[in-house]
Simulated assay, not measured.
Amino acid sequence: MHRLSLMVWKILSWGSWMRRSLMRTLRSLVLCHWRSKPSFCELNILNMPELPEVETVVRILNAKIRGAVIRDAWLDWPKMIRDPYNPRHNFLDKRAVANFKKNIKGKKILGLRRVGKNVLFDFAGGWTMLVHQKMTGHFLVGKWAVRKKNVLAISPEQMKTDKWNGYIRAVFYLGDPPNQRSGETGGRMLAFSDLRRFGKMILGPKEVIEELPDIKALGPDALARDLTSKRFGKILRTQNRAIKTALMDPKVIAGVGNIYSDEALWRVGVHPERRANSLASWEHESLHKELRVILREAIKKRGTTVGDFRDPDGMAGDYAKSRRVYGFVGRACERCGELIERKKVNSRSAHYCPCCQKR
C-alpha cells in the first residue's frame, strides 16, 4: 500500500512538473514573439480589401510589373491554388499545384485588371490568373531570399520592418525586360503576403477564368459607367432587406464592403437596417452619388488601412484619416455630436449615428 501511494505521488508530482514546464515554455514563446506578431485586438480589425484597395493594387502593379516574365514560382501554402475546372474544391489538390507551377513559368504579364474584388493577371498566349486576396492577402514587389520554408525580406525597407508584410505565401520570380541602356535584367520578385491564408489563385485559359462564378455571378461594378443612378435605384428597389446587406452583396453591387457602405450611408443619413426598397428615389440618387465619390476619394488615397492592408510598395493606405464613422464606436458624430454606435446587421458590423441615421 505504501509503495502504491508513493508511486501515485511520484506520478502526480511529475505531471505537475510537466504542467509548470509547459506553462513556462508557452510564456517564454509569448514574451519573445509578442512584438513581432499581431495582437488579438489587431486580429479583430482585419478587413477584406474592397474596391479602392484592389484598384490601388492593380494600378501600382501595372506600373511596376507589366511586361515582366514570370520565370519561376515558390509556394508556401499550396491550398490557395485552385483548379480552374473545379474551383470550389478548396482542399489540397497536388495535381492543380503541379499544373499551376508548370503553366505559370515563362508567362509574360500583359497587364492587370480588376473585376469586383478580384485581381486578374492577363498573360501572353491567352492565359489569365484570377486572385482573390480575401481577408488579409496583399501583393508586394521587392526582393526576398527564399530558403525552404523561410523567406527573408531584402528590400525595400518596409518589407523588413512592417510585420504585416512578413507572411509570405507565394513568390514569383520576375525576368524583367532588359534595360535599354545596360541590357541587364532586374531581380525583382512579386510576393503574396497572407496572414490568415484565405487567399486563392486560379490560373487557366482566359475563356475558362471569365466563366468562373467569381466573375459571372457579380453584379454591376460600383464604379461602372453604366451603373447610373436610375439603374442603381432600380436594383435596390428589388432588395427587400437591409440596405447595408444589399450594398455589400457582390451579386447586387460589386466592390463594396464594410468600410465604404458605412461611410456612404452616414453621408446620406440612412440607417443601415432600413429596407433597401423603402428608400425614396432621391435617397437612391444621393446614395449612388456619395458612394461613388467616396470610392474615388479612397482610390486617390491608395485605399484604407485600419489593420493589415498594404499596397504593393508595402505602404498603408491614407483614406483611414478621412473616415467619419467606421471603427469610431463611442466617438462623437461630426454632424450632431451623438455617439457613434455599432450593431450587427446580418452578422456584419455596421457603424452609424443613431441621431443622423434614424431608422
Results as ranks from 00 to 15, higher is better:
residue 340 I to F: 07
residue 227 L to K: 08
residue 209 I to G: 02
residue 282 W to A: 08
residue 252 V to E: 05
residue 339 L to D: 03
residue 145 A to W: 12
residue 180 Q to S: 14
residue 99 N to F: 11
residue 92 L to S: 06
residue 36 S to F: 09
residue 302 R to L: 12
residue 95 R to A: 06
residue 12 L to R: 14
residue 29 L to T: 04
residue 349 S to N: 15
residue 307 G to W: 01
residue 97 V to C: 01
residue 165 N to P: 00
residue 221 D to M: 08
residue 323 R to K: 11
residue 341 E to A: 09
residue 248 M to V: 02
residue 333 C to G: 03
residue 339 L to K: 13
residue 221 D to V: 07
residue 136 T to G: 06
residue 173 Y to S: 09
residue 27 R to I: 04
residue 196 R to Y: 01
residue 63 A to R: 14
residue 197 R to I: 07
residue 100 F to A: 01
residue 15 G to F: 07
residue 41 C to E: 15
residue 70 I to R: 09
residue 71 R to V: 05
residue 219 G to P: 12
residue 92 L to W: 10
residue 332 A to L: 13
residue 301 K to P: 00
residue 58 V to Y: 05
residue 30 V to H: 12
residue 14 W to E: 13
residue 355 C to W: 07
residue 279 L to H: 05
residue 166 G to K: 10
residue 267 R to F: 10
residue 204 G to E: 02
residue 277 N to Q: 03
residue 12 L to F: 06
residue 175 G to W: 04
residue 255 G to N: 04
residue 342 R to M: 15
residue 113 R to A: 13
residue 243 I to Y: 00
residue 119 V to I: 08
residue 350 A to Q: 03
residue 352 Y to E: 01
residue 355 C to A: 15
residue 238 T to V: 00
residue 202 I to V: 14
residue 235 I to Q: 08
residue 20 R to I: 11
residue 32 C to V: 12
residue 7 M to Y: 09
residue 312 P to I: 12
residue 9 W to H: 03
residue 260 Y to Q: 01
residue 320 A to I: 03
residue 220 P to F: 02
residue 214 D to H: 15
residue 323 R to V: 02
residue 51 L to K: 00
residue 348 R to F: 04
residue 82 R to F: 08
residue 295 L to T: 06
residue 203 L to I: 05
